[in-house]
Amino acid sequence: MKQPVSTAGPRLRALRAAFPATIPVLTGFLCLGLAYGLLMASKGYGPLWSALMSAVAFGGSMQYAAITLLTTAFDPLQAFLLSLMVNARHLFYGLSMLEKYRGLGKLRPFLIYTLCDETFSIVSSVEPPEDVERGAFCFWVSLLDYGYWVAASALGGILGGLITFNTAGMDFALTALFAVLFLEQWKKPENRPAGLIGLAAAAASRLFFGPGGMVIPAMLLILAALLGGRKRLCT
């Protein structure tokens, strides 16, 4: 994703570098966000509620889970604990971004607030062009991804059942995004053992703990393998 040096201002250059990287996220979020807004609307929560949830909580899979919580007995503590568990993987994103998000001043709280799967994958795997500041690049990726999600969930509530285009399978864009960024990590030989550990730990956890309970066991396995193999992995 290298681009020729342009005469545009630094902020615009960063936006130009960031936008193409987020197009797959736009595709996936449009699909999943619309579906989320639609689902919320079917439970009586209009576009404003969807947008509010997306803007404040900003966590895809947890928001889907929360729809169930919104339609049963009022239990905020359960909602809090479930969000902690569903989103535990963010802990590892934060650990990975400690270095890259260092010294970014005012941008930093926003970058942390909006650090989701997709944004993390891009900012940790894609190097911005040389004439683009890393902080500005991370900021635009974060803002665009966040904006897509909030806008799409509101749009889902507004459009309702108006969409006639068959979007089934469009959310595969996110799977493909993670697969491609896995391959990008794979290009560096020193990343390969960790990549394999991630795949194997997740596959084993999926097999033994099922689709609903795989994330935390997988994270623990990854942690154990990475720490246990540290001497060999540290090159």
Binding site: Y93, S125, F182, A218
Partner: peptide
Amino acid sequence: TVTYLGRVLPAAMMGLLVVYC
């Protein structure tokens, strides 16, 4: 240890995310 994890975790998490999807 934390710096080390920060370096190796992205590749591992990308593998996890593919399987998670």
